[in-house]
Design a protein around this nucleic acid. Structure first.
Lengths: 220, 220
DNA sequence: GTCTGTCTAGACACTTCTGTCTAGAGGCGT
DNA sequence: ACGCCTCTAGACAGAAGTGTCTAGACAGAC
């Protein structure tokens, strides 16, 4: 009954002694999160998580009241990370629209700020849970409002700003949904076209190279 | 054990006699499709479908070899309808880019051509099935190619056409994913801004009113 | 060293799926 | 009227999931 390394342990200080079969509440959460992302919410099953950590299933009920209790914790985690990341990216100071749009792009792409895979695992989950749907709708509205304000800040009229925010935001959602396989390079080299579609303006070559450099850091 | 009306029977000629508890293979498919759309693929369970038709669960196995057999049939149905609809809409004759883009819009919105809800129920399903994922990727590529050709047909350079196709297509996917609640009217009144973002050109007032009239037919 | 509180293993009870098998109801051709 | 063919009901078996209970291992406080 050897203990395997947990998948996403963030605090190495809490690592239990070797040979110890005990796990922390955070371990359960990390494995649950990983399973949610790769296999979907309905695969987050107590037995499956326990097996993955080589621990007894009944141990779970020491940390969580029920499976639902764990799922609530996962949703809370998402709320505290992803939505906050986009809003922060949108509010970041910028001297031109292009720069601001690039900031948002980077916010979506930088894995330190935003987890794309988690985002659409949650979005997925929302389709079978009205409660999650409501949480996500609020979150989408907040993100959209933040992006809309970017355009307004640069002088776009109010109604046009909303449309541009939607084109940008929904395009990101759709991209994540349908086109994750495509290598980042393709998008990079065409980034001028994207920016023109989003802002209605042509970006300067300096802005484009700055963006390519910034985004290049996250290429696979 | 009274027989209830099936939900999506399309051929009334095959309606069994009143009081007869028998159902057709098509009945199973229709109820399965409806359940897939409203509750997701993992809720397509033999017992649930049987209950909904007030029929015995074991009757299912007369028509289908297994549950998987039914799921395959659902995927085939989607392939034969939705993807075909978008390609047809893109290939439709148009005199201006705006008109062509509007045709695609209408293709996505007209429930007689395209089922939005089915489309993203399938997309949802793809996240937990590698096989479905592959089918959907092929399908997305075909839709994207058809939309790209629209822009090329109107003189956009090849690489720019692909980008514009993606902005348009992914924005639709993202919209379906995140914003289905919003009333259609809002999008209608702002349609000029959308078209400008997609084509880079300003649509004439005549084109806009024509579009509004066309899309108005499908408003709720 | 012992006690106590923390956590885990394993057995148990219950529910909900899938799939099989068999008897038989009922329409339809002859 | 008879039998065949089509389809359904219900019993059965088995897998997989959640949640509970109890004994006990182990670490740390004292």
């Amino acid at each position: 009954m050897a203990r395997v390394t947990p998948l996403h342990r963030d605090d190495p200080d809490k690592e239990p002694l070797a040979g110890n079969v005990r796990v922390t509440k955070q371990d359960w959460l990390n494995v649950a999160l990983d399973t949610l992302i790769t296999d979907g919410i309905e695969q987050v099953k107590v037995l499956a998580l326990a097996d993955r950590m080589s621990v007894s299933r009944s141990s779970f009920y020491w940390y969580f009241k029920s499976r639902q209790d764990l799922l609530d914790a996962l949703l809370d985690h998402w709320l505290a990370t992803n939505t906050k990341a986009i809003i922060t990216a949108a509010e970041k100071d910028a001297r031109t629209v292009t720069e601001a749009v690039c900031n948002i792009f980077i916010g979506f792409v930088d894995p330190n700020q935003f987890s794309t895979t988690l985002d659409f695992a949650i979005r997925d989950w929302a389709r079978r849970s009205g409660k999650v749907r409501r949480v996500i709708d609020t979150s989408d509205a907040q993100r959209l409002a933040a992006i809309t304000q970017v355009f307004e800040r640069f002088g776009y009229p109010s109604d046009e700003s909303l449309i541009r925010a939607k084109v940008l935001y929904y395009m990101q959602i759709g991209y994540n949904d349908a086109d994750l396989q495509e290598p980042m390079d393709a998008r990079q080299s065409q980034v001028g076209h994207y920016i023109h579609a989003f802002t209605g303006q042509h970006a300067s070559e300096a802005e484009l190279t700055a963006f390519r450099a910034a985004i290049g850091a996250f290429a696979p």
